[in-house]
């Protein structure tokens, strides 16, 4: 299992009676972007702090890049870049000075540090404002400076906690492009967030996290299969919907549900992409097909459905 960058086993953190993280088994593979999804207060940040050795686990095992963060925090922290949520900088210092301090803390030789800082600032598009004090920076600029800050140690793994929170749509999009770029360089990324549509755009795999537990994990279609029972949703529009068409559709293999939609057609949930069969079925039942659209369920839907189920099962746990 040499290609795992993060591996936890039964990782647990308790504060008194409160269990923040409950027997977590998390595996992140090398080069992938893993999204840790969950509502606020579900234990995402606590997990991250344990991964970095900033909080000691109550029980369980953690391996980050093959090191134990509790025993070898320096090795872990010199290879892992961490972007905390609502990242802070020394406002009175310039962007470059902020990064120089971080480079010094990492023990990077001066010349090399200057080279990396220039490169990182250029990369996140802050090359022109490097000499401006950070107090003049917008939220989006700070967030990008945070990426530069992480990049100067040339990390093998980057952990980001709510990186797109508080960014305007344009800023968030730019930021996600930045993450996409990092992914192309084979840097592994762990992204904790509750902003689902953004996570869906960049993550290879996601894990749904709630009350300190990770219930399901996998790619988005996998999760959809697990949580929604169907991975595909097909919208069928016909001229005159009638009973015969609906029955024909319901008889197709792999169909989970057929729901009529306000007199214009049907919504189908299926296990596979069976659009050709649907078309045939409609025509075979004497219907006139107008359009046939397939949509993958969004992570928002999975998430909402999933936590709705969880809510019903464990009613006393607050969301």
């Amino acid at each position: 299992m040499a290609d795992l960058v993060i591996e936890t086993q039964e990782l647990t953190k308790r504060y008194g009676d409160f269990t923040a993280v409950d027997r977590l088994d998390l595996k992140v593979r090398s080069g992938e972007v893993f999204g840790l999804l969950g509502p606020n207060g579900s234990g995402k940040t606590t997990t991250i702090l344990m991964l970095l050795g900033l909080t000691e686990p109550t029980a369980g095992r953690v391996q980050v890049l093959g090191f134990d963060p509790a025993r070898q925090p320096l090795s872990v922290k010199s290879r892992v870049g961490y972007m905390p949520d609502s990242i802070g900088f020394y406002d009175e210092l310039t962007a470059r000075e902020n990064l120089i301090y971080i480079a010094k803390l990492n023990g990077i030789p001066r010349k090399e540090a200057y080279r990396r800082i220039d490169q990182a600032l250029e990369r996140v598009g802050l090359g022109d404002v490097a000499e401006r004090p950070v107090r003049t920076f917008s939220r989006g600029m700070r967030q990008r400076l945070g990426v530069a800050d992480v990049l100067i140690k040339e990390p093998e793994l980057i952990i980001m906690d709510e990186p797109t929170q508080g960014l305007d749509p344009a800023g968030a999009r730019e930021f996600l492009e930045l993450i996409q770029g990092l992914k192309e360089e084979r840097i592994s990324i762990l992204l904790a967030s509750h902003l689902l549509h953004q996570v869906q755009a960049v993550c290879d795999r996601v894990g749904l996290f709630r009350s300190g537990k990770m219930f399901v994990e996998g790619t988005v279609p996998e999760l959809a299969r697990q949580v929604l029972g169907g991975a595909y949703r097909i919208q069928v529009h016909v001229v005159r919907p009638d009973e015969a068409i609906q029955q024909a559709l319901g008889r197709l293999p792999g169909v989970l549900r057929v729901t009529p939609r306000d007199g214009t057609g049907y919504e189908m949930e299926t296990r596979e992409d069976i659009r050709p069969q649907v078309a045939q079925a409609v025509v075979g039942a004497g219907g006139e097909l107008l359009t046939l659209e397939i949509e993958q369920p969004s992570l928002d839907e999975i998430y909402a459905r999933y936590f709705q189920q969880a809510e019903e099962e464990v009613e006393h746990v607050p969301a």
């Binding site: 900033l54 925090p73 892992v80 961490y82 945070g146």
Partner: peptide, 14 residues
């Protein structure tokens, strides 16, 4: 308060 603590402590120092 400046939220710099976690960022600084995430560097390889104790």
């Amino acid at each position: 308060n400046r939220r710099t603590l976690s960022r600084v402590l995430a560097q390889p120092i104790y």
